[in-house]
Write a protein that binds this DNA or RNA. Structure first.
Lengths: 193, 193, 193, 193
DNA sequence: CATGAATGAGTATTCATTCAT
DNA sequence: AATGAATGAATACTCATTCAT
């Protein structure tokens, strides 16, 4: 089950395409295998079961995305800039891969609680970044002192998530990256003094 | 398929309990029928198919909830008060029926796009209420003139939804109604001048 | 279960129409009831079960047809005339009611062995008429002395049945009554000296 | 869906046995699978659905039977001999496999029109053979010049079919092969000058 | 006699997973 | 490592029949 062998990524990429195209419930293992160019049984050399494909998919795609943000966000100075950076990266990342966006915003949610719990584990890293932005903002005086960090975090994540989901459900018919400064302004206004 | 006969509501109530308890994918029609105290076949005298139970469930429970808000919110004067009223009703409504909360926040989303689209139709009424609050606030000068109504709406809905979902995923272990004033303050701050 | 009450015939007529139109397997009791203008439950005041509708249908429609032939055929003198009379009546009767023809030739055969056995009981009367024609023909010297009555009977019935079935399967697109003299000539030729 | 793999024939043979024994409507897929010694799901690797089993059954069993007749009948010289050959082969073939006879004469007819139409496609080859016999007989002067080929074909097929069906419905209680010369004589008499 | 709401037994089909090759 | 044929559990839905009114 080595994650570094080429077929591991090959299967995950196939899964994104198939699920985005046919929806989660019509994405049989055999369909993913065919798209990946491997035999059905080969899937099980790399993944414990079908759910594991989904979880690995999220871990792999979002995990590295989160890691890179964590590194790069250090370079931003003010909390406002950090918030802008987060929103920009998040929206830009998904705008560049509409298949992945459809999978994360719509299809991945059609799963049972177990999978969603594991997905939330991955998301924790992302939520921590938000928390760090909020802390730094409160500390520096940019944000309201009495800001409830947990609520503010839910507002930030909930808003960005809703913005992306709406874009996907509207079938990408407008340029979501144009919304980045507006979302930033809106959320910043909600946090700052 | 008369929605006024007692068994219609009886089956919907049973569906809420069963789905909340076992999750959507483990909620067989026969399980719902048993919980409702009717025969399996009786379900199909009131619902076209299993999906129709879910859609009707949302239409019935959320539909009347939205209608009542639409009426009562007129009594509130300022946009700030209207916003508070909306948040309070939304959170209170779901805090009073944890089964229903689990269904709307988690289980109902484990469905295919067709169902989601029908659910979104019901939600449109709710989003309109938010839009009206925003308009009245902008008009009265309470809110920023340059506020992007669509984005602000997504922020408000996205935040409340995320707050409730987080509460459900944490298994109701804190009193969510205590968050009402905080959520109000946060969102108001994001909108006002 | 009185066969003389008007609803008895009303239901049978409805059954012929519904079965001819939708085929046997799509002819639910409720559909027949609706066509007959009675409640589903009313069917069971006149018929033991669904199979009984079919059997009664055949008994009623074919039974009286056979009886009338039995009476009228006496008037014919020679075996050849009798045979002509039989063929003419059989083909004319079904050509006048295409719905009934579709039911007897196609739909009624899509049933299980029990029903077919009961149908065969009704047919025995018909086969007896054939036997009587054959006997009189052999006796009078019109037909071959060594004719195997059972086989000849199967030939006569099998041929007429096949002729009518072919006509129904070709959707009545030619005038079957024109075939009467030809069929008579063919079968007569097979039997006579 | 390869018709040459051994399980294909294995399943068809099992289907003949099960359907002959229990009747078409009591022959569940699982029953056929069990008889064939395969899992239920395996059926669907070889057949599109349950109906496809029936259609394939007829195509396979009757198709090759018809093909062989087509080849061998060339060796017969006179139309009378060809007719004898056809009757002999037809009756002998079904007399040797009573299960198959029950299926073709009784059970296969308990199906809907779609299946019947597909079965008729297979039968067309058989009817062509009859037509060729009739043509050669008319040409050689053995048969009546004015013979209506379509009617004569219906007589020949209808008679043989009725003879076999009667034998099956009488539960094989007499030796049907003894009827071969009699049927031949009867039908020949009907056709010849 | 007549109704029609309620019943509940019965079954074809899918598809994740395995394992002999 | 890779294959893909074989497995078999699991379930929504229909419709003939009943029976309280």
């Amino acid at each position: 089950m080595n994650r570094n062998r080429p077929k591991f990524k090959q299967i995950l990429d196939a899964a994104v395409v198939v699920i985005a195209e046919h929806g989660y419930h019509s994405s049989q293992v055999s369909k993913i295998a065919k798209q990946a160019g491997v035999a059905d049984g080969t899937i099980y050399l790399y993944f414990k079961n079908k759910e594991d494909i989904l979880i690995s998919l999220f871990q792999e795609k979002m995990g590295q995305f989160i890691e890179r943000i964590q590194e790069d966000i250090q370079k931003e100075e003010t909390a406002s800039e950090k918030l802008f950076f987060l929103i920009q990266r998040h929206i830009t990342f998904l705008s560049e891969d509409q298949h992945l966006a459809a999978v994360t915003q719509l299809e991945l949610r059609q799963t049972n609680r177990d999978i969603r719990n594991q997905i939330n584990e991955v998301l924790k890293g992302y939520l921590q970044i938000i928390d760090e932005i909020l802390e730094s903002g409160i500390e520096s005086g940019e944000f309201q002192e009495e800001l409830d960090a947990r609520l503010a975090r839910q507002m930030i994540f909930g808003t960005i998530d809703e913005v992306v989901t709406t874009w996907v459900m509207n079938e990408y018919k407008y340029d979501i990256t144009e919304l980045i400064p507006k979302v930033h302004k809106l959320l910043l206004h909600g946090c700052k003094r």
